[in-house]
Nucleic acid binder design. Structure first.
Lengths: 182, 182
DNA sequence: GTGCACATGTAATGTGTTACATGATTAT
DNA sequence: ATAATCATGTAACACATTACATGTGCAC
């Protein structure tokens, strides 16, 4: 049920936090840790147009201080679509092919859903990630001893360790959440 | 000087290791840690066609065991393009927007370039990554204390820790390389 | 008065994804 | 016989990137 691109969901999530213009959103992508999204106008303005055509956001011309800017905010339908995206299951595929998107979903969770939903998300995420890490560790044994100095093997190790770091982070997050509930 | 997609370079690098067919390459993507590349025929066959049209690979029909398969291997020009890609500088942009591609370059290094080139690559990579990690750690201070329990902040932390893990890996790799040279 | 930040767009291009399509060979 | 694997492709579609394009307001 992928109905929109990651960029579109990112924009929706940001607009939920604060109604703002395309230019504002570009600045978010240019100056915050959301850097890995492109801040080029050629990606953001068309994406906002698509969202508006789909009825997920609405816009109004603002004439703030002599300068006119088009400010966007999510519609009911848009908010619903965002929440549906957030609440969807965390699958093995999300972990392997869409890890960044899954982290983005997590980032938007607490502003949009109840705490138990967030906790459930973390549990699913941890389960799938742990399974994948186990699989990678298993795959490691397939490397011949003399291949363990090759850059190919080392690059693989880098990937495994990066996933392990994410997993440790997830375990910490889950424990922290459980403490808060208690 | 980006002349080809990551997928095209991945295919070139694999063909340097071993001349093989599109189907073989699909299996590599489907069964090895190079999973995050799609193994769909709609991506791989057109990419191979582009590479052949560009003169970077050549193909020959093989009739191995009653089954016919088209086996590809890199041309001189293709090998040159691959090595140029591998030897290019590691920039800040590579670290922020193309980390996976940079790791892929690293993975192919020792099969294609001399050891000092690999070491230089690692040094550049470490310098840029360390600078970016410092920047992220700086950015962390911008979060208000009461925002430190938000999923947005936690997602940010996940990213930072993942980069830190990559950096520790890089330091280890560099030291290991220096020991071998000694 | 010149350059920079604000502000919003369009057009061309390349490419990845998904789905569709076909046919041969091997294993059950 | 029939399902799975081998093997190669095409077509429609959406999307991101890059470059181009325009105009305003403010600071120096």
């Amino acid at each position: 049920m992928v109905l929109a691109s990651t960029l579109e969901y990112a924009l929706l999530g940001l607009l939920r936090q604060q109604a703002q213009s395309g230019y504002d959103l570009r600045k978010v992508f240019a100056t915050t840790p959301m850097r890995h999204f492109s801040d080029s106008p050629g990606s953001i303005y068309p994406a906002l147009q698509r969202l508006e055509k789909r009825g997920w956001v609405s816009s109004s011309e603002e004439k703030n201080d002599a300068r006119k800017r088009r400010v966007f905010s999510p519609t009911r339908a848009g908010t619903g679509a965002l929440i549906a995206w957030l609440e969807g299951p965390v699958s093995r595929e999300d972990v392997i092919w869409r890890l960044d998107e899954t982290l983005l979903r997590f980032a938007f969770l607490d502003a949009n859903v109840k705490r138990p939903v967030t906790l459930h998300f973390v549990e699913q995420f941890e389960r799938e990630l742990a399974a994948y890490v186990r699989e990678l560790e298993e795959h490691e044994k397939a490397f011949a001893p003399d291949a363990r100095r090759s850059t190919g093997y080392l690059a693989f190790k880098s990937g495994v360790e990066s996933y392990q770091a994410r997993l440790e982070w997830l375990r910490r997050v889950r424990k922290q959440f459980l403490e808060v509930v208690r």
